[in-house]
Design a protein around this nucleic acid. Structure first.
Lengths: 122, 122
DNA sequence: TATAGTGTACTATTTAGATAGTACAGTTCG
DNA sequence: CGAACTGTACTATCTAAATAGTACACTATA
């Protein structure tokens, strides 16, 4: 039990990211129901209030919607989910480039890094 | 003025990372003095106490040392700095791989990502 | 109709992070 | 010596995040 949270970042933000990833991976289909706040809280080992906050923010972003008394569901807009996948991939790429750039590596070191990534993906 | 901090992460951790990056880039040489807590606080627009905490943690890690009444200095151990560069690059790479993996991209999408990175580095 | 499962709205408490302000001891240098 | 720097050590206050507990309105279903 217990989700591997990064202790240096707010849990509710990490829950938001996890829900988005599950939808982007297709683990939850468009219009599909996400776990109830109580279930996910138990699954992740956190307080239900924290999950509720994550769902509230996700709804404000329009990524999920709620049916009162029934549950919370991922948006039915498939393009919205694809857009999220693209956005997450793009920000991961930019964050990586920025971090590497801040280290001032030389060409050889960058090439070596690239080689390792290719190795992982081949 | 004002350093571009990530509001979702503790400032003192980001200051620690910034000091390490400056040393890794060679901006501060081995044994070189880092800014005084008051100067860096002014430069970054934060409270001196926050910078002091970052320096304290950096000293616990052995990355810097202090001379009472004089200042704080980056370790003279060049290997220690190189090790830090390697560690930061490696963790950036792994974080990137993990993030991409969590999105469930297909081979084409991964190849496209790789192409963009190569483009940036060529 | 009762029961269980939804989201949601509270209050209260604790903790970590950040700020503000003050103070002090050690060092350097004019 | 004295002034201007260093790091460091306090106290106090504020805020965001997280927890715990309770409660309520809504919905589906046995």
């Amino acid at each position: 039990m217990g989700f591997p949270f990064d202790p240096t970042r707010p849990i509710y933000l990490q829950i938001m990211e996890e829900i988005k990833k599950r939808a982007v991976r297709g683990e939850i289909p468009p219009g599909g129901q996400i776990p109830s706040v109580r279930d996910l809280a138990k699954e992740m080992g956190v307080n239900p209030n924290t999950v509720a906050r994550a769902y509230l923010e996700l709804e404000r972003e329009g990524f999920v919607f709620t049916k009162r008394g029934q549950g919370t569901y991922v948006t039915q807009d498939f393009a919205r989910i694809e857009q999220e996948r693209e956005r997450l991939a793009e920000s991961a790429r930019q964050r990586f480039l920025k971090e590497i750039e801040s280290l001032g590596l030389n060409e050889d070191q960058k090439a070596e890094l690239l080689r390792k990534i290719e190795e992982d993906w081949s």
